[in-house]
Design a protein around this nucleic acid. Sequence first.
DNA 1: GCCAACGTTGGC
DNA 2: GCCAACGTTGGC
Length: 154
Amino acid sequence: MNYWLMKSEPEEFGIDDLKAAPKGTDHWDGVRNYQARNMMRDQMKKGDLALFYHSNCAEPGIVGIMKISREGYPDFTAWDPADPHYDPKSDPADPRWFMVDVTYVRHLERIITLRELKEKRELEGFPLLRRGNRLSIMPVTEKQWNFILSLETA
DNA sequence: GCCAACGTTGGC
DNA sequence: GCCAACGTTGGC
């Protein structure tokens, strides 16, 4: 089993939106970055767990847990001219962008803020904390996963 | 294949 | 709203 962290802007799609979706499940569309795409297309497996991270908001941080409920498949929003993530270069016969389905598991008891994560020596090298990092999806090691969740009740 | 210009991300 | 960082684009 693999662990992940996935970023979303709460004003666009926050953890409450996922919880409120039918069966707590939605597709994670709109990723237009090759590294992130490759992870969704090739590495994410059904049953993997992911941290839900709120970015670009008043209090950026980890807010909950979700699981991967469908493995990589073409992101059809790339073919919709009305969609903000429309990409005319994505050919339906040879899709450029992929997404997975995620299912809500739970909120954390409190937000584990970016500010707090930055203070932890245990998370040295964690991609989220690297300067200028812009990856919206990144792998989390089991050790990092356990450490981050240990902060929830710390 | 280089690299400057441009657009986006995302913390602050 | 500002701006640093960085990925992408496209001219050459």
